[in-house]
Nucleic acid binder design. Structure first.
Length: 421
RNA sequence: GGAGACGUGGGUGAGUGGUUGAAACCACCGCUCUCGAAAAGCGGCAUACCGCAAGGUAUCGGAGGUUCAAAUCCUCCCGUCUCCGCCA
């Protein structure tokens, strides 16, 4: 959510931003609607003011005849208020609906483009592995080494269902522990957060309205979140934070659920695209400064780069184009791991900052040095998404004999072994 | 799942239809006093929106309703607590 004052004062910028994000919205129309809202609000408030004044007089006035006369008069004014309120309510509803659709303004450094195909590579790291054999995909590797069971996965869980087993399961645990150790050493607060969340949390983070199709919903009206960001961001909703406690840095673990509606033909095998997975996510809250957001955005991206390098997985960083940005995102980098079987990079991490777009909806504030209440800024980046990351490890570390070498840094988390056999 | 109690400002907590946006206390800030501090005294101290301002409007968990007038009465929702049941 943007501030209506900001929108009014920066109509062109907001409109251009929406255009860049390929969001169809008429800002001029919103401002006209807001004019109407303010006008109607004034009318209602003036009438209320009159009623309040007279009601106070009624309370004090002892003359019963005059009293009754005033009450009768107010009854008529009240009818008028009721009508005007009705009109105001309709305007506000339409206004709110529009306000929820106004996207955050992308940073000037965000390139134009329609989809992820137009994201720009910023830098790449690592030697892509050269095989003297035809590399297998992670599905074949996992099945050959009995690391996963996809057949029984779909039998039990349905399309895209999977079981991880043996060293496959251990690899997940190893990654979680390795990442957790790192982020805790960097001062992050480790959290285990709910996936079952209320609608307000998804409104607050910007997934609703707009993203309902990709969310599972329970018969009681809760949703299953697609990322730990949702619960973690809502943790402080409605609260005022101490300035000294900022920035807050969390490493949140959760199950993630995605319906993947509209992706039926994509990645139908394996663990690249699944309905249910686990993820460690970095979530940060900082004071309301663009410079601070930018600085921390680079920092959360650098953390992941460091870990990918330690793991020895070739990757590249792309800056997402306007059309590939979420409603609330100002700027986003995707970190993409090299997948030998596909001969291309695949997104494993997504690093973005939001300014106060989310915190305005969630009402998370702090007092600045002048004791003024301000909305904090928020950022997040994937730390470790299991399943995509282990899939990348299996493919990049596969050997000619079908075994998989274990990355040096993970060995101690996997019983000191050198290979998955 | 059943029965009951409750939800007020940063905190504790008073307030059950009428100058109550809200007593009192604590915390916090300013001033007086002091060489300084403590103590004491005085004053200030919610948020959002509209307005150049004066001022106005709204908000006592949330949404509706009754009334000239609602923190106070009614309905629904959310949450917390206690007891019972169920499960571990």
């Amino acid at each position: 959510m943007l501030d209506i004052k900001f929108i009014r004062e920066n109509k062109e910028i907001v409109q251009e931003g929406a255009k860049k994000k390929l969001v169809d919205i008429d800002i001029e129309k919103l401002v006209t609607l807001d004019d109407e809202r303010l006008k109607q609000l004034k009318e209602v408030e003036d009438l209320r003011s009159e009623v309040n004044k007279v009601s106070n007089n009624i309370a004090r006035d002892q003359d019963p005849v005059l009293k009754n006369q005033l009450i009768e008069e107010m009854r008529i004014v009240k009818e008028d208020i009721k009508q005007k309120e009705e009109k105001l309510k309709i305007i506000i509803e339409e206004w709110q609906k529009m306000m929820l659709q106004v996207p955050n303004v992308p940073d000037i450094s965000v390139p134009d483009g329609k989809s992820d195909e137009e994201n720009l590579e910023l830098r790449a790291w690592g030697e892509k592995p050269v095989f003297d054999f035809t590399p297998k995909d992670h599905v074949a590797i996992a099945e050959n080494l009995d690391l996963a069971d996809f057949e029984r996965g779909t039998k039990v869980s349905g399309f895209r269902g999977y079981f991880m087993k043996n060293d496959g399961a251990l690899l997940f645990f190893a990654l979680w522990q390795y990442f957790l150790d790192y982020f805790v050493s960097q001062g992050y607060t480790p959290m285990i957060v709910p996936s079952l969340v209320r609608k307000e949390t998804l409104m607050g983070t910007g997934y609703i309205p707009g993203g309902e199709d990709d969310l599972y919903k329970t018969q009681d009206g809760e949703y299953l979140a697609g990322t730990g960001e949702v619960a973690m961001m809502s943790y402080y909703s409605g609260e005022v934070l101490q300035k000294e406690s900022l920035p807050k840095k969390f490493i949140a673990f959760s199950s993630c659920f995605r319906r993947e509606a509209g992706a039926h033909g994509k990645d139908v095998k394996g663990i690249i695209r699944v309905h249910e997975f686990f993820k460690l996510e970095q979530i940060l809250l900082c004071e309301a400064s663009h410079e601070e957001s930018v600085k921390l955005h680079e920092e959360i991206t650098n953390h992941v780069e460091h870990l990918m390098q330690e793991l020895g997985i070739p990757y590249r960083i792309v800056v997402n184009c306007g059309g590939d940005l979420g409603l609330g995102q100002v700027k986003k980098y995707d970190i993409e791991a090299w997948m030998p079987s596909q001969d291309k990079y695949r997104e494993t991490h997504s690093s973005s900052y939001f300014h106060d777009f989310q915190t305005r909806r969630l009402n998370i504030k702090y007092r600045d040095e002048n004791e003024k209440l301000k909305y904090v800024h928020s950022l997040n980046n994937t730390a470790c998404a299991t399943s995509r990351l282990p899939a990348a490890i299996l493919e990049n570390y596969q050997q000619a004999d079908g075994t998989v070498k274990i990355p040096e840094v993970l060995k101690k988390y996997m019983g000191g072994k050198d290979f998955i056999k």
